[in-house]
Simulated assay, not measured.
Amino acid sequence: MGDMTENNNTVDIDGAEGREGASSEQSPIEKLAIVVVTYKRQKLLARLFDSIKALNAAPWRVVVVDNEHSDDTKVMVQRFSDAVNAQWGKTEPDESGNTQRVVYAPQKGNIGGSGGFSNGVKKAYELGAEWFWVMDDDVAVLPNAIGQLAKWTPRHDVIQGSRLDYDGGDFYWQYDFIVPLGIPNPIAPAAFGPSGYRTMDTMCFEGGLFRRNIVEKIGLPDPRFFIYWDDTIYGYLASKVTDPIVVNDKIIQRTRDIGNWDIAGVRQLNSTSDMNRYHIMRNRGYMARYFMAHGDYRPALFALGTLLTALKEVIRLVAVDREHIRTGLKAIAKGWVDSRKLLHDPNWQPMPPLK
C-alpha cells in the first residue's frame, strides 16, 4: 500500500545527467556506501550511473548487486568503475585493503530486491561502510543529494529523503505506518512544517539512508520477503532502536514510467504485476511474525488490515490493471493463503542482530 504519488511543482533534472567529470568533493558522510540492486534493466542502470557521476560529492563505495549475473551488466559496471576512478580517484581502503570505489556483486540467481538489498548491505558492512544509501536501478540521484542528506546525519541514524516522480512532480510517500493494521496511512499529512522533517516508523529502499549501528542492532534486511514489505519492516525495526525521519529535501527521482490512476488529480494508484500482488499478500505473514516478536501483533486489527490490503489490490486491478483481473485475483488469493502458512511456521526466526 505504499505506492501512491502526489504530483506538483515539476522540476527538470535532465541537465544534471551524464555530466561526466563534474567537480566533486569527498562525501561529507563518513564511509558512505551506495548499494544498488539491479535486474535486467541495463538502460535504467546506465541512467543511474550517469546521475551518480554527476554527484557533487563522491561516495566512499558503490556496491552494485546484479541479480541477473549478466555479462552486459558486468561490462557496464567495469566501464562505470573506470569512469569513477578517472573522475574521483581511488578512495580509502576497505577492510580488504581495496581502494576501488566500485564493487561488483553478481548473485547466483534472482533473489529479488529483498535478497539483493540484504546481500548488498552485508557486502558493504563487511567492507567497513559506516552509512548505507540503498536504491533500485530505476531511479536517478540528484546532484546535491549527499550534501542534502549530510546535514541530518549528526543527529539522526535513519534518514529518508524526498523524491520526485517520473514526470518531475513531487512523489508522495506514505511515511506513517499503522502498525496494528499493518498498512501505511494513506492520509498522513504531506507538509513537513518548519522543521523540514517528520518522524516515521517505516522505510523505503528507494533512497533510504541508515547508519552502521542500526544494522548492528537490528540485523540485515530480511531476504525471505523476496519483494515487497521488506523495507517497511526494516524501518519498523529501526524505529524500535532510534527515531527514523523523512525529510523534505529532494534527493532522488524515479526514472521508470508506471501506469497509474489519478485520484482527485492529486495522488495516484500505480499499476503492478501479479508477482507483486502475490508477495504483497504473502509477505503479510512475515510482517505479522515480526510484530509478534516485538509484542505489536493484534490479531483482529491485523486481519482487518489484510482485508483492506486485498481490497486495495482488487481496486488496483479494476482501475489500472483490468486486463489481468483473472490472474490477479488468483495471485491475491494464493498470497493470502500462503501468508497464513507463514503465521504458523514453527521454524521461523527473525533476522538476528549483528552485534
Rank of each mutant, 00 (worst) to 15 (best):
Gly196Lys: 03
Leu45Ser: 08
Leu45Glu: 01
Gly115Glu: 06
Ala191Asn: 13
Asp222Pro: 11
Trp133Pro: 01
Val75Arg: 15
Glu17Ala: 08
Asp296Met: 09
Val314Arg: 09
Asp274Trp: 06
Ser23Cys: 04
Lys355Trp: 01
Glu6Lys: 12
Pro352Arg: 15
Ala33Arg: 04
Pro154Met: 12
Ile280Thr: 14
Ala288Arg: 09
Gly147Tyr: 04
Ser81Asn: 06
Ala86Ser: 14
Glu323Pro: 02
Trp152Thr: 05
Arg224Val: 03
Val241Ala: 11
Ser23Phe: 10
Gln160Asn: 10
Arg326Gln: 12
Leu142Cys: 12
Tyr175Trp: 13
Lys90Val: 04
Thr99Ile: 10
Asp230Leu: 02
Met4Gly: 01
Gly116Met: 06
Trp261Gly: 00
Asn67Tyr: 03
Lys43Phe: 05
Thr232Trp: 11
Gly207Ser: 04
Arg284Phe: 02
Asp231Ile: 05
Gln100Pro: 03
Leu343Phe: 06
Trp60Asn: 04
Val103Ile: 15
Val266Ala: 10
Arg326Gly: 06
Val158His: 08
Thr255Ala: 09
Arg198Gln: 11
Asn248Leu: 03
Val102Thr: 06
Lys108Asn: 10
Asp249Trp: 07
Thr242Ile: 01
Asp167Tyr: 01
Ala238Val: 07
Asp71Ser: 14
Ser273His: 03
Asp243Glu: 15
Gln148Val: 02
Phe225Tyr: 15
Phe171Gln: 13
Gln42Tyr: 09
Thr255Asp: 12
Trp133Cys: 01
Tyr175Lys: 13
Trp261Lys: 07
Thr199Ile: 09
Ile233Gly: 02
Trp60Ala: 07
Gln268Asp: 11
Ala331Tyr: 08
Asn56Leu: 02
Thr327Asp: 15
Ile218Thr: 05
Thr306Trp: 10
Asp136Met: 01
His324Cys: 04
Glu95Gly: 03
Trp131His: 13
Glu30Cys: 06
Tyr290Ala: 06
Ile258Thr: 14
Ser162Ile: 03
Asn110Trp: 11
Lys108Leu: 12
Met4Asn: 05
Phe225Thr: 02
Val247Cys: 08
Gly18Asp: 03
Ser239Met: 08
Asp274His: 05
Arg41Ile: 07
Gly89Ala: 06
Ile325Met: 04
Gly328Asp: 02
Leu311Trp: 05
Thr306Tyr: 02
Val103His: 06
Pro299Gly: 10
Gly120Tyr: 00
Ile111Gln: 12
Phe210Trp: 12
Ile29Lys: 01
